[in-house]
Amino acid sequence: MSNISRCSVQLDQMLSGIACLLTFMMILSVTQSYTMTVEKNRYAEISPLSERCSTSNSSLGDTIVCSGIEIGDNLTALIEEEVDNFENDDRIVGVLSIFRILTENRKLSENWIQTTAFRVKRLIFEAPNIDDIENNAFRGYIFEELIALDIASLTIEVLNEGIFEGLQYLEELTISQCRIHQIFANALRPMAASLTMISFESLILPLDVTNLTGTVPLPKVTYVDFRYNDVGKLNAQSFSQIENSETVFLQYSLIEDIDCGTFENMTGLNTLVLMGTLLTTLDSCVFGDELINRMQNDTLYLGTNNWNCNCDLDWLKQLKLNYVVGDTPRCYSHSCLPFEEVEFCP
Results as ranks from 00 to 15, higher is better:
residue 2 S to Y: 12
residue 4 I to Y: 09
residue 5 S to V: 15
residue 5 S to P: 09
residue 11 L to R: 15
residue 16 S to W: 09
residue 18 I to H: 11
residue 18 I to E: 11
residue 22 L to M: 13
residue 24 F to L: 12
residue 32 Q to V: 14
residue 32 Q to G: 10
residue 43 Y to V: 14
residue 45 E to Q: 10
residue 45 E to G: 08
residue 52 R to V: 10
residue 53 C to S: 07
residue 57 N to K: 14
residue 58 S to R: 04
residue 60 L to N: 05
residue 61 G to P: 06
residue 62 D to S: 15
residue 64 I to M: 05
residue 68 G to F: 15
residue 72 G to Q: 06
residue 80 E to F: 00
residue 80 E to A: 04
residue 81 E to Y: 08
residue 83 V to M: 04
residue 85 N to K: 15
residue 85 N to C: 13
residue 91 R to M: 08
residue 92 I to F: 07
residue 94 G to W: 03
residue 100 R to I: 13
residue 104 E to D: 14
residue 104 E to F: 12
residue 105 N to P: 00
residue 105 N to I: 04
residue 105 N to V: 04
residue 106 R to W: 11
residue 114 Q to N: 11
residue 120 V to M: 02
residue 122 R to G: 04
residue 130 I to M: 02
residue 138 F to T: 04
residue 140 G to R: 03
residue 144 E to R: 13
residue 146 L to E: 01
residue 151 I to V: 07
residue 152 A to E: 15
residue 155 T to E: 12
residue 157 E to G: 05
residue 159 L to N: 04
residue 159 L to K: 05
residue 161 E to P: 01
residue 169 Y to N: 15
residue 170 L to W: 05
residue 170 L to R: 01
residue 174 T to A: 07
residue 184 F to E: 12
residue 186 N to R: 15
residue 194 S to K: 02
residue 196 T to P: 01
residue 197 M to R: 13
residue 198 I to A: 01
residue 202 S to R: 10
residue 204 I to T: 12
residue 210 T to P: 07
residue 211 N to Q: 11
residue 214 G to Q: 05
residue 215 T to S: 11
residue 217 P to E: 04
residue 218 L to R: 01
residue 221 V to A: 03
residue 223 Y to Q: 13
residue 224 V to A: 03
residue 226 F to E: 01
residue 230 D to R: 14
residue 230 D to P: 07
residue 232 G to M: 00
residue 235 N to M: 02
residue 237 Q to P: 07
residue 240 S to K: 12
residue 247 T to H: 08
residue 249 F to M: 09
residue 252 Y to Q: 12
residue 253 S to P: 00
residue 255 I to C: 00
residue 265 N to A: 12
residue 267 T to E: 10
residue 268 G to R: 13
residue 271 T to Q: 13
residue 273 V to E: 08
residue 273 V to H: 06
residue 274 L to K: 04
residue 275 M to F: 09
residue 277 T to A: 08
residue 292 I to F: 04
residue 295 M to N: 05
residue 298 D to K: 09
residue 300 L to G: 00
residue 304 T to Q: 11
residue 306 N to E: 13
residue 307 W to V: 02
residue 314 D to Q: 15
residue 315 W to L: 08
residue 320 K to W: 10
residue 324 V to T: 10
residue 325 V to Q: 01
residue 326 G to Q: 10
residue 331 C to F: 03
residue 336 C to S: 11
residue 336 C to L: 07
residue 337 L to D: 07
residue 338 P to K: 01
residue 340 E to Q: 13
residue 344 F to S: 04
